[in-house]
Amino acid sequence: MTTVTDRPGYAAPAPAPGTEAGVLDLRSVNAYYRTFRAVRDVSLSLRPRAITALIGPSGCGKSTILRVINRMHETIPGARVEGSVVLDGVDLYRRDVSAVRVRRTIGMVFQKPNPFPAMSIFENVASGMRLAGEKKSSVLDGRVEASLRRAALWDEVKDKLRQPGTSLSGGQQQRLCIARSIAVEPEVILMDEPCSALDPVSTLRIEELMVELRQDYTIVIVTHNMQQAGRVSDVTAFFSMGDDRAGYLVESGPTSRIFSAPTEKLTEDYVSGRFG
């Protein structure tokens, strides 16, 4: 990639004192759909190179928070965000930060596997690089292979890269979507209930993959499945829904503590299966 223009006045910001490089910080985030507030005043600091699980009953705004982080929330008509989300010292909602860049830096894997039906397996993975203008087939070939290997899918698809992505099984499709998102080298990967449409064996493979990817990426996962949160995550954040139907953060901390010794009664009731 070549530098075309330098932004006037740009200087890489020094991380604020006391913050580790690469931290993802949500500061007083409120998210709205038109007049309805879906998320109320969430402040949360996410450790880099760790898996953070967002858990809570349905309707508590977990998915909305995820979509706020990579600015997908604003693609819905009438949706807006207050507060700020800061990655590596940069507010993602700053005027001079484009949503396109945010989404390249913060990838997303969706609930339902969504490989592009009109593209082959290869093209699905290459699509992000092509968007960035990468045309050299040697570079594309290498990166596609690397991403598929990283997503533990290469051995299963290396002989049928030209077949449509939709020809794969559900679990394979989801790993293809993970390969697709890591092909553009994000810093953070957001996963919105990535296993809810999959069978237990496929789920296990995705979970192994998440633990493997944690070395290089900050991962945030929304899950309904508390066992899954317990198995894979380092940090757990528990959300609930207030009387105004807005989701809010009840508490967060190391997963082991949230599951064994939560400070809030609500959390304890939830993790022990008493509601939700």
Binding site: M1, T2, R7, Y10, A12, D88, V90, R101, T105, E187
Partner: peptide, 12 residues
């Protein structure tokens, strides 16, 4: 770094 990628010069 993520900050570079978010704010850095235009690429390509």
């Amino acid at each position: 770094s993520a900050a570079d990628r978010l704010l850095g010069p235009h690429r390509g």
